[in-house]
C-alpha cells in the first residue's frame, strides 16, 4: 500500500509532488503512488543545475527495469540543486519518495504556479479513480 500523501505538499496529475520551501523555491519529486506503479527504479537522469524549466515540461527521467518515464517540472524556474544521491541509489525513490527520494529544487519564476497544483485531498481522489 502506498504511503499517505502528505498534506503539506502539492501534487500534479502526472504524479509529481512539490514542496513550497517558503523562500521562493520548491523541492520536488515523484509520489509514492508513482513509485509503486514503476516498482524497481534502477536509474534516474537528473536535470543539470542551472537549467531553466517550464511547468508541465520534461525535467528528469526515471527508469525501472522495464520502463522509461518522464518526470515533469511542477513549477517553472531554474534548477538550483539536484539530489545527487539518486545517481548511485535510485532506489531511494522506492524507499522514500516524499523525502530522501527528492529529485531537485527549483527557484520559481512565478510563485502563482503552485496554485495550479492539487492539494493532498484532490490527489488522493485522483489516484483512487
Amino acid at each position: 500500500m502506498a504511503k499517505p500523501n502528505p498534506t503539506d505538499l502539492k501534487y500534479t496529475k502526472e504524479h509529481e509532488w512539490a514542496k513550497d520551501n517558503g523562500d521562493g523555491t520548491v523541492t520536488m519529486g515523484i509520489t509514492d503512488h508513482a513509485q509503486e506503479l514503476l516498482t524497481d527504479i534502477v536509474f534516474v537522469e537528473l536535470p543539470a543545475v542551472g537549467k531553466q524549466v517550464e511547468q508541465g515540461k520534461q525535467l528528469a527521467v526515471v527508469e525501472s527495469v522495464k520502463s522509461v518515464s518522464d518526470v515533469y517540472a511542477s513549477v517553472s524556474g531554474e534548477v538550483i540543486e539536484v539530489n545527487t544521491d539518486l545517481e548511485n541509489q535510485p532506489e531511494l525513490i522506492n524507499a522514500d519518495a516524499f523525502t530522501g527520494g527528492w529529485i531537485c529544487k527549483i527557484k520559481m519564476t512565478n510563485p502563482a504556479d503552485l496554485n495550479a497544483l492539487m492539494d493532498a485531498a484532490a490527489y488522493d481522489a485522483l489516484i483512487k479513480e
Binding site: 516498482t39 524497481d40 525501472s64 527495469v65 522495464k66
Partner: peptide, 9 residues
C-alpha cells in the same frame, strides 16, 4: 502477467 511483485525480486 508482466510482474506479480517486481522484476528484480
Amino acid at each position: 502477467p508482466v510482474q506479480y511483485t517486481n522484476v528484480i525480486e
